[in-house]
Amino acid sequence: MKLKDKWKRGLPYVGNKGQNAEQIMEVLPDGKRLVDVFGGGGCVSLTAASSGKWDEVVYNDRRKTVVNLLKSLIEDNHHFDLMKYVYMDRETFNNWRDNMPDSIECTLVLTVWSFGNELIGYMWGKKI
């Protein structure tokens, strides 16, 4: 994957198919619609949408805020400073998890800084 296409990797989800998304696109047949049933981090949807093989790409995830986050990032329509979240300590993460309302910004923070991207436990153990 070329540097200019790294954005297609989507959100950092466990099991992310970012390394193989272009090869996946090559073996799938062209058509009107591609449905990414287990959308996760969005790399398959992002790569498919930019490939031109389908008229429509449908991304699906069980969390509505994940869908809205991905959409806002694609459309460059987010209303928060991504650079604010380059580093987050355990206490701040726990505060976001326990006290912040569900939103696309909260979903981004919890996805990026949680262990296994499960939005519950802080990325690093207490000894690290």
Rank of each mutant, 00 (worst) to 15 (best):
T47D: 00
F80P: 05
H78E: 14
T65K: 01
V44D: 02
D55L: 05
N68V: 01
F80I: 12
S50T: 14
H79A: 11
V44C: 12
W54T: 13
T65I: 00
V67T: 09
F80L: 04
A48C: 00
V44P: 04
E75I: 03
W54Y: 15
G52R: 03
W54E: 09
S50R: 01
A48R: 01
W54L: 01
W54V: 06
W54N: 04
L70F: 08
S72I: 02
S45Q: 11
D61I: 02
E75F: 05
K53Q: 07
S51R: 04
K64N: 10
H78Y: 13
S45D: 11
A49C: 08
T47K: 00
L69I: 12
W54D: 09
V67M: 04
W54A: 05
Y59F: 15
D76M: 04
T47C: 00
K64M: 01
S50N: 14
V44R: 01
S51A: 09
E56W: 13
S72K: 04
V66S: 11
S50F: 00
S51I: 05
S45G: 11
G52W: 13
S45C: 13
D81M: 11
D55Y: 10
K53V: 10
T65N: 06
D55Q: 13
V58T: 15
D76N: 15
K71M: 06
N68M: 14
D76K: 13
L70S: 02
H78W: 05
L69T: 12
A49V: 11
N77M: 02
L73N: 10
D55N: 15
S51F: 10
Y59P: 10
N68P: 02
D81S: 12
S50E: 13
H79R: 13
S72A: 14
R62G: 12
V58Q: 01
V58D: 09
L70P: 04
R62C: 04
L69S: 01
N68G: 07
W54I: 10
S51Q: 07
V57N: 07
N68K: 12
R63C: 00
V44L: 10
S72G: 14
S51G: 11
R62S: 12
S45R: 04
K53D: 05
D55E: 15
A48Y: 02
T65D: 08
I74T: 11
K71C: 09
R62M: 14
V57W: 05
V58R: 06
V67G: 03
G52L: 03
V44F: 09
R62Q: 15
R62H: 13
E75N: 12
D81C: 14
D81F: 03
D76T: 14
A49S: 15
K64T: 14
S72W: 06
V58C: 11
S72Q: 06
E75T: 10
D81Y: 07
R63I: 02
H78V: 15
L69R: 01
V57Y: 11
S45M: 07
V57K: 01
K53M: 02
N77E: 12
F80C: 04
W54H: 11
N77Q: 13
D76P: 04
H78M: 02
R63E: 11
S51L: 05
D61L: 00
T65Q: 07
L70G: 03
D81R: 09
